[in-house]
Nucleic acid binder design. Sequence first.
DNA 1: TAGATTGTTAATCGATTAACAATC
DNA 2: TAGATTGTTAATCGATTAACAATC
Lengths: 218, 218
Amino acid sequence: MERPDAPPDVVIRRLPLYARSLRYLLEEGVHSVSSQELGERINVTAAQIRKDLSYFGEFGKQGIGYDVEKLLNHIDHILGLTHHWPLVVVGVGSLGQAIARYDGFQTQGLRIVGLFDSDPDKIGQMVDDLTIMDYSRLHAVISEHQARLAVIAVPATRAQEVADMLIEAGIRAILNYAPIILQTPDDVWVRYIDPVAVMHSLTYYLAREQGGAEVKRR
Amino acid sequence: MERPDAPPDVVIRRLPLYARSLRYLLEEGVHSVSSQELGERINVTAAQIRKDLSYFGEFGKQGIGYDVEKLLNHIDHILGLTHHWPLVVVGVGSLGQAIARYDGFQTQGLRIVGLFDSDPDKIGQMVDDLTIMDYSRLHAVISEHQARLAVIAVPATRAQEVADMLIEAGIRAILNYAPIILQTPDDVWVRYIDPVAVMHSLTYYLAREQGGAEVKRR
DNA sequence: TAGATTGTTAATCGATTAACAATC
DNA sequence: TAGATTGTTAATCGATTAACAATC
């Protein structure tokens, strides 16, 4: 008796996009959607959506499609979004502040329970209803709220030591905005947000389009 | 006579990471690096680095490795980073401001030439040395600077119309921070930065680790 | 020369897509 | 019933890795 394959990580990364699109559909008052229609909204093939969902169960009806609300509930359950996840943000520069202020972070199953910075001038200041704290309080706050998620928004030179502290304090998953690859234990999840690298992959294509652009302009 | 394969997009996305790591090595005064060493820094296999680079030429020396500065120059050329790319930012909320203020955006081959917002109260205000402008000036500014890159940092509800305007005005590549998939012509490049979706893929794994965490704690 | 490491080919692995029986 | 669409299997496509001759 084979254990069914664990869903590949690419699938897990797409689930939140399906969930979001379903939320928009729900707001629009759409009750039912086919894999075809959902796929067109998010530029994914219908086959891929059906295949992705099949890792988790059977959520649709032949000839009909998917009930938007029901499928959304299923995906939210799969992603663990039926409750809120406490998280801490380290580094309260303009990026850290933007994260702390961003609605989408505070809603959607995430709740910031601590803001931390190393700058003594910032300690004690508030961002909305959150007080910026010293690193010395990291461990206590993470323990108190049982936080396992963290965002790193410090300069690259500081990111590795911050990651080490966070992991030491019990953090199991990190979203890293610092432009540096972190060295972490295998059982800690790390994801990167790297807008400059993304931009540089775009300049690659633009640099090659110069001629084409002239043509297109007629 | 076959045209050599165009490098796959995954490869193009990794090049900026190689470039950055090489920049750090250069700062550290390291002159030579093997694919093995470079790979360890960025969690990529040595074979993958060599394969990726082979799409563009032969940059190393058997038995020795790569000259850090030379390889960096090659990659910068490949990515088009030998000159600066003008770009516009639309949406100057806290995220747009963070982008405008971020050094890494203004250096590293990118130069913000226009900030735009729809809020009349913001028009005319400055972020560092950039004035926030009305959408009516989009076309003129993009034309004047020949900008082909744009960042969208407006709410999801506004992102599609902003994308349409940008493309109409000559933008060919978009970095979209709004949590919505854009519908764009095939010849326009779009990349997404979606921290909440990334977080939700992490909660998936954390939700499954509850038991494991207990075990690990002993 | 001996040791190290590249560039490249072939093998492997994994993800996407096409196709269709099942069935609403 | 006829038409639509799912869930799943098999085929295809593409990316990663292993291995090694070439050579510094």
